[in-house]
């Protein structure tokens, strides 16, 4: 195996790395680029803890090789904040609703919620549950996560109105 040079945009910054072809994208993000906000739960694409946005679409970064992300745009939880603020409005709604306990699935849940709201600014409860159904949470039973995403959507609509 020969290492390859890749270049990708991560949270708005161009990042370059020299990686083995078998390295997963999540290992690149965590171990090479130091973005440990994205977590590993199962490494077989079920739990959703490693969810990131690839060109705006939520994907499992454990099922993608780093070399496949060459030339693409990646957003991780660290990139969800608005401007200089430490946290974005969806993150703030998660805090307000205590939509987590241990915090391990939280980055993946935020990615799933973020992708949903980008597409559907007024989701109902069923649509929210559908959107996060690919992300497992062992602490909360999901109720407060659903409430947080609904709260964020409502606040955005109020802000526009």
């Amino acid at each position: 195996m020969t290492a390859r040079d890749i270049s990708l945009t991560v949270n708005g910054e161009i990042r370059r790395a020299n990686v083995m072809p078998r390295m997963t994208l999540v290992d690149l993000l965590r171990d090479v680029l130091g973005l440990t906000g994205t977590h590993i739960g199962c490494e077989h694409g079920v739990c959703g803890a490693c969810s990131i946005l690839l060109d705006g679409v939520p994907v499992r970064s454990c099922l993608i090789f780093a070399v496949q992300a060459d030339g693409h745009e990646v957003t991780t939880v660290e990139g969800l904040a608005d401007g200089d603020g430490e946290i974005g409005d969806l993150q703030d709604a998660f805090w307000e609703c205590h939509a987590m306990q241990c915090g391990y699935c939280t980055p993946g849940m935020l990615i799933a919620g973020h992708a949903l709201l980008a597409e559907n600014p007024a989701p109902d409860t069923g649509e929210i549950r559908e959107a996060i159904s690919g992300n497992l949470c062992r602490c909360t039973g999901y109720t407060q996560i659903v409430e947080a995403i609904a709260l964020c959507a409502a606040r955005r609509r109020e802000g526009e109105g």
Partner: peptide
């Protein structure tokens, strides 16, 4: 605790 987790800083 939640603040560090939502920021991806756990």
């Amino acid at each position: 605790e939640d603040r560090r987790f939502i920021a991806g800083k756990g």
